[in-house]
Simulated scan of single mutants.
Amino acid sequence: MTVADELADLPYADLLRRHEGPLAVEGDYDTVHFGRLSFEDADRARGARFLESAVTDCVFGGTDLRRARFNDVWVEGSRFTGVSLVESDWLDSALTGCSLAGVEAFGSVLRRVVLRRCKLDSVNLRSAALHDVVFEDCVLREVDLGGARLDGVGFPGSRLEQVRLAGATLTKADLRGAVGIDLADGHDSLRGAVIGSAQLLDLAPALAQTLGITVKDR
């Protein structure tokens, strides 16, 4: 998936109209530009639909976006703190240079989504479904992927710190490009993943412990 570097590079850039005012529950946002806006706890947009839209330099703090749908949405330089994205649906979208902290996104579905130079801190993606998702040059710190399904997911240039994978199912997940893999749990869930030989050596002690293998040289 090709990701636009700038707003002007979007194929629908000339159609975008600037958004003013709050968000609405089940609102329809087609070819809308959200630029330098702040949405707080009082903003509720459950079930809202975003199509061919752009979000730049926005702040979302405690915003309710449960079950929102994002189709061909470009998000750049925005911050999400304590936001509810539970059971949200993302398709053909990209997040660049964004920060997500304390975000609840369990049960969400992400398909053909790229996250580039993003920082994810304590993001809850339990039981989520990730298909053809790329985390490029990202930091995933204490991200919970327990029970999630990762199909064709890649982590080039990304660092995984205390990531939870217990009960997750990995299919063609490629971890070879990750610059660090530190799992809090779920080492046995790496079945189905592709890793490099150096990464295998780094993970060997944890894998041995998970499998109940005692390693002794004498």
Results as ranks from 00 to 15, higher is better:
Val3Lys: 02
Asp5Lys: 15
Glu6Ser: 12
Pro11His: 01
Asp14Trp: 01
Arg18Glu: 15
Glu20Thr: 05
Glu20Phe: 06
Gly21Asn: 14
Pro22Gln: 05
Leu23Glu: 05
Leu23Pro: 07
Glu26Cys: 02
Tyr29Gly: 07
Val32Thr: 08
Gly47His: 01
Glu52Asn: 13
Ala54Cys: 06
Val55Leu: 09
Phe60His: 11
Gly61Ala: 09
Gly62Pro: 02
Trp74Lys: 01
Glu76Cys: 12
Val83Gln: 08
Ser88His: 06
Ser88Gly: 14
Leu95Gly: 12
Ser99Asp: 08
Val103Trp: 08
Val103Pro: 10
Phe106Thr: 04
Val109Asp: 08
Leu110Ile: 00
Arg112His: 14
Leu115Lys: 04
Leu115Gly: 07
Arg117Thr: 13
Leu120Asn: 05
Leu120Cys: 01
Ser122Met: 06
Ser122Asp: 12
Asn124Ser: 10
Val133Gly: 04
Phe135Gly: 00
Val143Thr: 14
Asp144Lys: 10
Gly147Asn: 10
Leu150Val: 00
Gly152Glu: 10
Ser158Leu: 11
Ser158Phe: 08
Val163Asn: 12
Leu170Thr: 01
Thr171Cys: 00
Lys172Tyr: 01
Lys172Glu: 13
Lys172Ala: 14
Lys172Pro: 01
Asp174Ile: 00
Asp174Tyr: 00
Leu175Thr: 00
Leu175Asn: 02
Arg176Gly: 12
Gly180Arg: 15
Ala184Pro: 09
Asp185Ile: 03
Gln199Pro: 09
Leu200Trp: 12
Leu200Arg: 14
Leu201Cys: 10
Leu201Arg: 15
Asp202His: 11
Leu203Asp: 02
Leu207Asp: 07
Ala208Val: 00
Ile213Gln: 14
Thr214Met: 11
Arg218Lys: 11
